[in-house]
Write a protein that binds this DNA or RNA. Structure first.
Lengths: 209, 209
DNA sequence: GACTATAGATAGTTACAGTATCCGTTATGA
DNA sequence: TCATAACGGATACTGTAACTATCTATAGTC
C-alpha cells in the first residue's frame, strides 16, 4: 500500500500523514527503495486511533504521541494508566494548589483512597474554580457525583481486568481513558435533557438555535 | 475602579481585559469622560467567570461569549441549558452520523428519553469512535455508565431547582455544565486510582513520571 | 521515454489567544 | 501649573498548534 492508498483508506490527507510520520505518531512504512515505502493495514488502524485521540479525545498531537508510545512500550500497566490520565487532563499538577484546596478535595473524595495525581489535583482545581465562581455545591449533589464516580471507576477497572494480554489491556486503558471522558460528558447531557424534559415538558419542543 | 485596579483585583492583564471588552465578554465601564471609565466589583466577578470558562472549562473566547450572553439575556432556562451544552461540546452536530450510529446510541440510552442534541449526538459519535478503535464495551460497563449518568443528570437538575431566581439558576446551569464535566473527569480518575490500587497495590508507589 | 507518484525537506497558512505599542486625552502631585 | 503617569481605544505584533503547499530528486507506470 502506497501513501496515496493509505490516505484514501484512512481518510487522512497525505500531508497530514507525512506530519504524523515526522512526529513519530505513525511508524515509517517498509522501505523498498531510498524513496519508496509501503504501508500496511496496521497503519490504517493506527491512523484511526490517532484521529480518535486527537479529534474525539481532544488530545494534542504531542499528547497523542506520549500515549501511543505507552501502548507500544512494555511499561507496566500502571504507568500506561498514569500516562493516559495525564495526557487526557492537561496542565493538572499540584503547584498553585493551597492546602485548603487539597483539603476540600480530600473531603469530597471521602471514602476513596487517593494519591497525588490527576484525580486529586483535578478535583481540587475544579472545586476551587466552582467556589470562586460562586457555585457552592451542596451535600446531596456532591454525594451523587462521588457515587457516580465510584460506579464508573470500578466499571473501568473491571473492563480492563476482562481483557486478555498486555496490548489489549493497554489499548483499553488508553482508549477508555480518553473516550470515556467524552462518553460520560455526552451521557450527562442526555441525562440532563431527560430529567429536564420530565420536569419542564416544554424543553422537548423548545430548543436553543 | 480604573482598569489598572481591575487588573490587579482580577489577576487578568490589562491587554487581556481590553481584549474581553473588545469582544464583548466584559461590559464596558461607566464612562466619566470620552476616554475615562470606571469599573465595579461586578466586573471583577465577571472576569472570574470568564477565566473559569476559558481556563478550566476549555471554552474558546467566542464560546464563552455565547454562554455569557445567555446568562444575561432573559431567554427561557431551557435555552440557556442548550446553549451551555453546545458551547461545552464543540462540533457535535447530527451530520455525518449514520442511522446505525444513532441506533447504537439510542440503544445505549435505553430508559432515558432523548432528543436531538449534544447528548444523543455526542453519545453516537463517541460510541462510533470506540467501535472504530476496537474497544467493544460490554453490557456491564455500559449499564454502569448509564446508571452513573442518570445519577448525575438528576443531581444537576435538582441543584438547579434549588436555586432561587432566574439569574442564579442560569449561572448554575452555565457553571455547572462547564465545570461539571471537568469535575466528573477528575473524580473518575480518582476513582480509577482507588480501585486500581485496591487490586494492584503496587500502583500507589509505582507512578508514571 | 513521457508522465505521474513517491519520500523527504522546507516553507507557508490559518486560527486563536494574548501581548505590545502608539495615540491623543485626562488625572495627579510636587 | 506643569511635568509625568495612567487612561481608553485602535492597530499591529507574537507565539503556538495543526495542517497544507511546494519543491527536489528519484522511482514506478503506461
Amino acid at each position: 500500500m502506497k501513501i496515496s492508498q493509505l490516505s484514501a483508506a484512512s481518510g487522512v490527507s497525505q500531508p497530514t500523514i507525512k506530519l504524523y510520520l515526522r512526529e513519530g505518531l505513525l511508524p515509517p512504512g517498509a522501505k523498498t527503495h531510498a524513496n519508496q515505502a509501503t504501508y500496511s493495514e496496521a497503519h490504517v488502524r493506527r491512523l484511526g486511533i490517532i484521529r480518535t485521540l486527537t479529534q474525539v479525545g481532544g488530545l494534542s498531537v504531542a499528547s497523542a504521541k506520549t500515549v501511543l508510545d505507552a501502548i507500544d512500550s512494555d511499561l507496566p500497566l500502571n504507568w500506561t494508566f498514569g500516562l493516559a490520565q495525564r495526557a487526557a487532563s492537561p496542565d493538572v499538577d499540584g503547584t498553585d494548589l493551597s492546602d485548603a484546596d487539597l483539603a476540600r478535595a480530600d473531603d469530597f473524595l471521602a471514602g476513596l483512597t487517593y494519591h497525588d495525581g490527576p484525580g486529586r489535583f483535578g478535583v481540587a482545581k475544579t472545586l476551587r474554580a466552582m467556589a470562586e465562581a460562586g457555585l457552592e455545591a451542596d451535600g446531596a449533589w456532591r454525594d451523587s457525583y462521588r457515587k457516580a464516580a465510584e460506579i464508573i471507576g470500578e466499571a473501568d477497572i473491571d473492563l480492563i481486568d476482562r481483557r486478555e494480554g498486555r496490548l489489549a489491556k493497554a489499548e483499553t486503558v488508553v482508549i477508555g481513558t480518553v473516550l470515556g471522558d467524552a462518553l460520560l460528558a455526552a451521557l450527562r447531557r442526555a441525562a440532563q435533557e431527560h430529567f429536564s424534559s420530565q420536569r419542564y415538558p416544554s424543553r422537548s419542543t423548545e430548543t436553543a438555535p
